[in-house]
Design a protein around this nucleic acid. Sequence first.
DNA 1: CCATCTTATGTGCATTCTACACATAGATAA
DNA 2: TTATCTATGTGTAGAATGCACATAAGATGG
Lengths: 129, 129
Amino acid sequence: MADKQDSKRGPEVKPRNWLVPVILLTLREWNSYGYELMERATAFGFEAMNPGTLYRTLRQMEKEGIVESSWETSKGGPARRMYTITDAGEAYLDFWAKALEQYQRNMDTFFRLYTGRPLRSEENDKKEE
Amino acid sequence: MADKQDSKRGPEVKPRNWLVPVILLTLREWNSYGYELMERATAFGFEAMNPGTLYRTLRQMEKEGIVESSWETSKGGPARRMYTITDAGEAYLDFWAKALEQYQRNMDTFFRLYTGRPLRSEENDKKEE
DNA sequence: CCATCTTATGTGCATTCTACACATAGATAA
DNA sequence: TTATCTATGTGTAGAATGCACATAAGATGG
């Protein structure tokens, strides 16, 4: 019975839209490109980052104006599409970070209830109707 | 330019897969039904919970064996489909909570970098290549 | 007793994000 | 020249969720 979890609805606790802010955060520190960003994303819970997902996301981000790109051929190996964060991108990152704080509070709420320390609101008296 | 964020990819920091654990957490405290659970979900960042989404999720959860339901007609008003958490459901909730801890660590990582306190790993010397 | 409001449950369709599989191609090394 | 590594992509599918709409039982008011 415990298998059912894994088969259909395993706890994938990656928040929606993580990829974008993680990319932006990295690009704020140094310019980079898809292949490198893929490794970088590992630190944020994207264990087996798929190339396709990442590259498509980067293209989309450029369309939205939060990053810019240009080809780099100077280094050895195949050409790299180097990405830079834009002003709009930095603004977006700030916006996202604020929203994330709210999200963290929701997680706290969840844990407080989960660990058995209720919220001391009137809803609580309803227990076991 | 700042509008572009809202138009396409506004920071929707509603986590993915929250709905299921929030329902399970509530059902662990008291048996409930869709209409009531909808209001309950508000406390976890589902501001305008849509009925359709919730009811469909509940049905799916029953199919997976993490909740059970039966009609209740005793109370006034239309019949309610009352839901109960199963043992598998409680196990799933525990599993989810563990995964959530990992997620919290990822968020910490993100915030540490965002607020400018780097992780003191060797990657950091790469800055501005 | 008829309309309509509230409670309550549901379906259909679209979108967004992501996963998975596969394709392309330059550089390098055997 | 074949294989391998680096690097970038496309095509397709699926899951989670949103939005709009449908259904129906009971309560309420005229």
